[in-house]
Design a protein around this nucleic acid. Structure first.
Lengths: 186, 186, 186, 186
DNA sequence: GATGAATGAGACTTCATTCAT
DNA sequence: GATGAATGAAGTCTCATTCAT
């Protein structure tokens, strides 16, 4: 996936950096835009990322990887409920910090295999954490695995609707998640 | 608001019907599109609805009115918590039945005065219902008035992310809201 | 030309008043606009004035008539040069006071017979005043009748290019005309 | 300003040629029109010239440059009055040969920096030539620098009002300017 | 590989005019 | 006669994508 030639690799990185900036600004990702800001030809951007979705997913990939990592660590945590809650907190924090993550999470259809793979892993981890917590009787039977991602997206969305600026977001999101978790806890 | 002439009134209704369909399909409202589907000239649509937002808000208006009505009735309910919960349920059901409602609710800036008026009413009702419930000690202090709309939008969003088709939506939304309400309840 | 029925006559007047306002504001004359401002249906405006040009010419008519009147009086003036200069001054003052006049004067093709008639009269008067002035030897042979209207339009145009607002216009136009007249005088 | 690639340069020239034709025909410059006539996509025209004004100013640029050049030469002329008169003649001839020039001159707001620069230069030259002529006592104090551009535009406008076709224009304009100059001369 | 010019569909909007009521 | 709703051509502009250089 990562190109061979050194300059190509440099371009690839640069495009990603620019895309990250645009996403963080809330600007819709347009490949032309990215190219202009990156000081590259449109064609170059298209060569590296055939569609805007591909670019968006690539932008989101590191965050997805980090979440997967956190989740894996959480699986070794002794207290199932704490592990579960901590994981969801990570997810929500990620989504609220990174608009790319909400978009990618909310979609069923991915364009990059890597995205699907990571989303599957995260789903699986969520499923396990939920199962473990449920086994200890800490979780009510109201939700199942398929609800986790939607609920996290919902909290992120609520946060965006509520917040004036990026600064408010983290505390708001935590507050909303806490309320939800209390609802889930036995 | 509704025009006087019979043919104009018919067109107005027709445009609204078509817009409703598009909204329900999830298609972004474009006035040209509406015109084409309605078999009307673009100008006609623009005459009735100067912008897509105006049309969207008009589509959402009946639902907003219904919600306001329900809410007013809820204020007379004896049990504050039940009234509060019932109102939020209505709101979420509305949003999940009608995508227009989520969009209109999630925006701060309205183009129709009527929309602002209704949203203000609904907000006021929510505020009162929340205050009454809180006064009886039924509600934790985690949330305040400004959280109600975002949370309802969040639940609707979560529902859309989760659901395969419109059919799943109502039960899912209720389930999510119930969980949230349990988190809010003392 | 003037309609029979009293209400029709009233409408006719009203349309004209509104059109006058728009012209004075520098707004391009649009029959829809006129109708809206007049609180009348478009159809009514169209009935009275089939085209924007017809309306514009009608707006300009009183000024044209006044100019014709002034000119006729000027023909009886004893001093041919003074009469000539005074007439051109009137014309320029009219054009600079009334944007409709420049437009109507600058066009060859009129839509109302009355306009053509008045423009012809004014032309004829200009021709005579010029001839009389020339006969006394007061005017250089540089210009002929066909130059009078263009030159007056040119001065009006120069004035509009120069001026910040309507207030500056009259003195500027007079200054420009004086210079021109000095150039014409023997 | 001119693009690097050969085909792009060709298009740029072609667009300019077409625009020139439209301007000469008296057709208002519309980018769509230009594209159609040039057999190019609209986007191509927009890429080269973001607005109709930008295109119009680019069309006018060569004439403006030539005028600036003439003016600079005129500053070295021994006879201030002749130099002044000759410069104004050039200006008027330019405006009457090229309708773009009148429009660009009559506007205060330019979109291309180059246009502003050239107009400023020409203004400065006019100011100096006028000052020099006035210092020798050759010019009446009736006009000042701010009148030069409006007066030239006025003469051009008068010429367009007068003339049947392009052929008449040059002699007419010269005649009008001569008369004006006589009015300015001591 | 990199470039960025070209493309043209399509969205948005305005407006002169017609014609049903 | 009066009304104003309807029309749709035409203008403006944007943007995703292709392809010649």
């Amino acid at each position: 996936m990562t190109p061979q030639r050194k300059d190509a690799a440099r371009n690839w990185e640069h495009i990603l950096t620019v895309a990250r900036e645009l996403v963080d600004e809330g600007t819709p990702l347009q490949l032309n835009d990215v190219a202009r800001r990156a000081g590259l030809g449109v064609g170059t951007v298209y060569r590296h990322f055939p569609t805007a979705e591909a670019l968006l997913e690539t932008v989101a990939t590191p965050c997805l990887e980090e979440l997967a990592g956190c989740g894996r660590k959480g699986l070794t945590d002794d207290d199932p409920w704490t592990a579960f809650a901590a994981f969801l907190t990570k997810v929500v924090e990620g989504q609220v910090t990174d608009p790319a993550l909400v978009k990618v999470s909310a979609t069923t259809h991915d364009v990059l295999p890597r995205t699907t793979e990571l989303k599957t892993q995260i789903m699986a981890i969520g499923t396990q954490l939920l199962a473990r917590a449920r086994d200890t009787g800490a979780v009510r039977p109201d939700v199942d695995d398929a609800d986790l991602v939607p609920l996290m997206c919902g909290i992120a969305y609520a946060t965006y609707v509520h917040s004036a600026g990026p600064a408010d977001r983290l505390p708001t999101a935590r507050r909303y998640l806490d309320t939800l978790l209390r609802g889930l806890h036995t």
